[in-house]
Amino acid sequence: MPNMIEIKNLEKSFGDNQVLKNITEVVKKGQVICVIGPSGSGKSTFLRCLNVLEKPSAGQIIFEGQELTNISEVELNKLRERMGMVFQSFNLFPNMDVINNVKLAPLKVKKDVEEEASQKAGQLLEQVGLADKAEQFPLSLSGGQQQRVAIARALAMDPEVMLFDEPTSALDPEMVGEVLKVMKDLAESGMTMIVVTHEMGFAKEVADQIWFMDEGYIQEKGAPDEFFANPKTSRAKEFLSKIL
């Protein structure tokens, strides 16, 4: 499989606080990576560095052969079209209805024609099981429904990779399943995914690789069966004993 994203000596500091301390990893096309680790270990920061919502302090991000840390805003906008992102707090646009949330970027960024964009948005809403909610406003939906719209919105740009930052952490327990189901379907369709999550069941079942992150490093990585049955580092052992 070809490389999708190469991360080379990535570092990120906020003032004196060095959050990412030297990360070198590779994500291959079609892989599903689950990033786990304690709170504050830098998982979100890591994910946000990948699409340069956060500008890395040092190191390189190479996305399909293109270096991202030293390119112009305009080029960066182009690259972000190809990397979808889903946030813990959904971040739907409350000033427009569901279908327009999904259509906005294809219309304004890709300059798709209205008909085509509407049709595609309809299909995506169907795919996440929300075809009947197209005309509703985000705030009238449940958390699980909102997050599924957010996934459809990201998919509308035809991304080559999807970044998920704790997509189910803000949800009531009974809604977690519907979102994970959509993500699982997506993984099975061959999408390259990097998922920060606390859902160990999902990680075990869907991930190709687990990256365990702590104190700004990827401390350990491996196939899920291996990692969960038999963690090697003491930090991973301690972390797993707390959450399982």
Binding site: N77, N91, N95, L104, V109
Partner: peptide, 24 residues
């Protein structure tokens, strides 16, 4: 989060202001 969501979709600063931030 509104700005981040818009930017992550590839929208420029201007588009983000025009369609997401200003209307709200």
């Amino acid at each position: 989060g509104q700005t981040e969501a818009a930017r992550s979709l590839g929208m420029s600063q201007t588009l983000t202001y025009r369609y997401v931030i200003i209307p709200q």
